[in-house]
């Protein structure tokens, strides 16, 4: 085990989990929904990509696109079920949380029923090649994962900064009531947001399936990692999510180097709890600017 291998792995995982965390973070801050069906969307888009690779073509771009598209559809499904009917009802945050959990239960069991418990694997969408960089061997999937996730997340963030829809989403992040007063449709924007964050989950699913397999319950661990990063960085803050992803990735690399693999989760949660005790809204979260349901 050399340090370069561990660090490169940590960077790859941090990129993928960071993508998930940014998706969760955007969802929470703009529509006020804690999307715990994210793991289900993740698994669903993995299966979508798998179906595309089986029945259409194993071309990398097509598979990636199919995953992102399925993820977006899954996000819109969650929006239609858990956001549209109850977003203006009392106790929305709790009910939305429970509704997404219910969707997750139904969805993963349906996937299990439909596809069976056997794990599937996707084709290598980035091909097979290697780069030697100062003694570290970087394989194609690592470079592809990092580059793709950073590129897509950057594109999404740029789109949110510069486009009309992005302006609407940011307005809703700041103050949903005021946004609806000035004519930004809460439901319509909710669909955009959930489609985009679902697409990010789909992207993460396809990228992670280069390392792991696709299974009905395979979305749970990535979702929990994403949630941890989003929590740690401050829900609603993209910058915080990036910092938290780096911190937790470093922690993972160091722990597995110094203590051993089975202590990774323990040190990770101790770290998160310590960070949250110091800053209850996460690294970049502000107490007073937190979204009040």
């Amino acid at each position: 085990m050399d340090i370069g291998f561990i660090v490169s792995n940590a960077v790859v995982l941090a990129c993928i989990y960071g993508t998930l965390a940014i998706g969760l973070s955007i969802t929470w801050s703009s529509v006020g929904l804690i999307n715990l069906a994210y793991g289900f969307i993740f698994a669903l888009s993995g299966y979508g990509a798998w179906l595309a690779s089986q029945y259409v073509t194993a071309n990398g771009i097509v598979v990636l696109g199919a995953g992102v598209l399925t993820g977006a559809l899954g996000g819109m499904l969650v929006c239609a079920l858990a956001f549209i009917p109850i977003h203006d009802k009392p106790n929305f945050t709790v009910r939305g949380l429970i509704a997404t959990l219910a969707i997750s239960l139904v969805g993963t069991q349906a996937l299990l029923w439909f596809f069976g418990p056997r794990a599937k694997n996707l084709p290598e969408i980035f091909g097979f090649w290697k780069v030697h960089l100062g003694g570290i061997i970087l394989t194609s999937d690592k470079i592809g994962n990092v580059v793709t996730s950073i590129a897509v997340v950057t594109a999404v963030l740029l789109w949110m900064r510069s486009s009309r829809r992005g302006l609407e989403i940011r307005a809703m992040m700041m103050n949903p009531h005021a946004a609806s007063i000035v004519g930004i449709g809460v439901r319509k924007t909710g669909f955009y947001v959930m489609a985009i964050t679902g697409g990010l989950a789909g992207l993460a699913a396809v990228l992670l399936s280069q390392t792991y397999y696709i299974s009905p319950f395979g979305g749970l661990t990535p979702m929990i990692k994403g949630v941890s990063i989003a929590l740690c960085g401050g829900l609603g803050s993209v910058r915080g999510a990036v910092i938290a992803a780096i911190v937790l990735g470093l922690n993972e690399a160091l722990t597995s180097r110094l203590l051993g693999g089975q202590y990774v989760l323990i040190t990770q949660f101790v770290l998160i709890i310590v960070i949250l005790l110091i800053r209850p809204r996460g690294i970049a979260g502000m107490l007073d600017r937190a979204r009040e349901a």
């Binding site: 804690i34 945050t93 709790v94 941890s228 989760l265 998160i272 949250l276 209850p280």
Partner: peptide, 17 residues
């Protein structure tokens, strides 16, 4: 220190841990 949902998310993580 933590509010409702932050705590819910944290405890899911503890469960997984």
């Amino acid at each position: 220190r933590l509010d409702g949902f932050y705590y819910a998310l944290l405890t899911i993580g503890l469960n997984e841990l």
